[in-house]
């Protein structure tokens, strides 16, 4: 295993691509302490008391926004939610102008969800506040990658040497990108699978095995991660029908049998039952899908704490 860093190097979390293995380990270790906080009767610590966190969401999101908000409240931060439709975005204000206006209120952290890849980079270069990427276009969703890794590590005790299969719409998925960067940095063997029309060009150069045969990806896997398939992709001509997609790539109980007997089933949500995953698999004993949601809070607490709390993770307990 890699060493654990003492702190994160930057003021922002823009993507897993920028993190070292020891920084990833630091976040995951810190998240363990944060998970303990969530199991207490009083689920609150004063770590971010007096700090202001703005959740700036340009795309609709229930799960991620709620998860960040819970994490911020458990750390005693003052939080502010700004969603598209209630802000001046509809009047045509640019992202930079919106951010500079928010910055004038001296936030410590801005959590940004945006439809454009690289939007967080743009903000990070403009703002003094730390920027946490809550999903930018097709680029990254680093806290999702971290919570997925946290969940695998919790179940398997490690990441190194595990075979992880990721199946679905790879091309448009920011969850996919954060996961492959994280898992390859941590020494996992990553297999990615999807229709060739939804496979990003040159992706094998990241150090993953790419295949269009789901059986090959799943065989002997320790963890299987399914990605959401959106109806728009069928309309965009990437594959003929949701029915055929399920036939060729859907995670069925039969396919799960090819994995290790103790393999876990993951999904970042929201799920399309009967499209990328059979209900028997999603609700089966191997599914850790709800654990992922619970762990999301712990991981986001860890990230916010490490960026805005200014200390090492031992200080929290």
């Amino acid at each position: 295993m890699s060493d654990t860093a003492a702190r994160l190097r930057g003021k922002d979390l823009l993507g897993i691509a920028d993190l070292t293995a020891s920084e990833i380990t630091l976040i995951l270790d810190t998240a363990e302490a944060m998970k303990e906080v969530s199991s207490r009767p009083i689920k609150k610590v004063p770590a971010l008391r007096g700090k202001t966190v703005i959740n700036l969401f340009y795309e609709p999101s229930t799960r991620t926004r709620t998860s960040f908000e819970v994490a911020e409240k458990r750390l005693s931060a003052d939080t502010l939610n700004i969603a598209i439709g209630t802000s001046s975005v509809v009047k045509g204000e640019t992202l930079i102008d919106t951010a500079l206006n928010l910055e004038a209120m001296s936030p410590d952290i801005i959590v940004l969800r945006h439809a454009s890849s690289g939007a967080c980079h743009l903000l990070a270069r403009t703002c003094k506040a730390g920027i946490v990427n809550a999903g930018d276009g097709m680029h990254e969703h680093p806290t999702q990658g971290l919570l997925d890794a946290f969940t695998i590590r919790e179940r398997k005790g490690r990441l190194q040497g595990l075979k992880v299969a990721i199946v679905g719409d790879l091309l448009h998925s920011r969850v996919f990108r954060s996961n492959i960067y994280l898992l390859t940095k941590m020494g996992a063997e990553v297999w990615v699978c999807g229709p060739p029309t939804l496979m990003p060009a040159g992706i094998e150069l990241v150090g993953v095995h790419a295949t269009t045969r789901v059986e090959e990806a799943v065989e002997g896997a320790d963890a299987i991660m399914m990605l959401r398939i959106q109806l728009e992709r069928m309309q965009g001509g990437y594959f003929p029908s949701l029915r055929e997609y399920f036939q060729v790539f859907g995670m069925t109980p039969e396919r799960v049998k090819l994995a290790k007997p103790d393999a876990i089933i993951m999904h970042p949500g929201p799920m399309n039952r009967g499209v990328e995953i059979a209900s028997e698999v999603a609700d089966g004993p191997a599914s850790v899908i709800l654990d992922q949601v619970a762990n999301g809070v712990a991981v986001r607490m860890a990230v916010l704490y490490l960026l805005a709390g200014g200390g090492e993770h031992e200080a929290v307990a």
Binding site: M138, H139, A201, I203, V206
Partner: peptide, 12 residues
């Protein structure tokens, strides 16, 4: 369209 656009999540 290529490795770098894929990494950055930019449409190719």
């Amino acid at each position: 369209e290529g490795f770098h656009a894929s990494q950055l999540g930019l449409r190719g």
